[in-house]
């Protein structure tokens, strides 16, 4: 375990660094992108690259600190479970937001290259 600890620490710090970078880029993207639907892609970077990855990194760092004793497994385990929750729930939030914004017309999809959903709604295939 002693030999593994520095490796875990380095991997953890690299993952946290990636997370920080992704958060900054996602913030820039939030500002630059033109409308709600495109901003959702920046939000995805925020959720996966900016939250999921650094939480895993924090768990690895916690695992590598032996001074914490038994408590470090609690920290790491809570981190892993949180990361899995995030992985399952973050896309659901994005999807439900996108769906609600689209059908309530709260956000307008412009600029757009193509909108096949609108065409299907107009044809009466989908009633929402």
């Amino acid at each position: 375990m002693n030999l593994l600890n520095p490796v875990l620490t380095i991997i953890g710090y690299v993952l946290v660094g990636i997370g920080a970078f992704c958060q900054v880029v996602a913030g820039i993207g939030m500002n630059r992108f033109p409308n709600f639907f495109v901003r959702l892609h920046a939000a995805t970077i925020c959720a996966i690259g900016g939250s999921f990855v650094p939480i895993i990194g924090c768990s690895l760092i916690a695992l590598s600190i032996e001074e914490f004793g038994v408590i470090r497994f609690f920290l790491a385990g809570a981190g892993f479970v949180t990361a899995v929750f995030l992985l399952i729930l973050a896309p659901v939030g994005s999807h439900l937001l996108a769906k609600a914004a689209y059908f309530s017309k709260a956000a307008v999809l412009y600029p757009k290259a193509v909108d096949l959903l609108e065409e299907d709604v107009e044809r009466g295939e989908i009633r929402e």
Partner: peptide, 20 residues
């Protein structure tokens, strides 16, 4: 209820939330 994605992921996540 909401869309099928929301429902299915809630089905998976509910027991986990309770156990946590």
């Amino acid at each position: 209820g909401m869309s099928i994605i929301g429902k299915m992921s809630t089905r998976v996540i509910m027991p986990m939330i309770i156990i946590v």
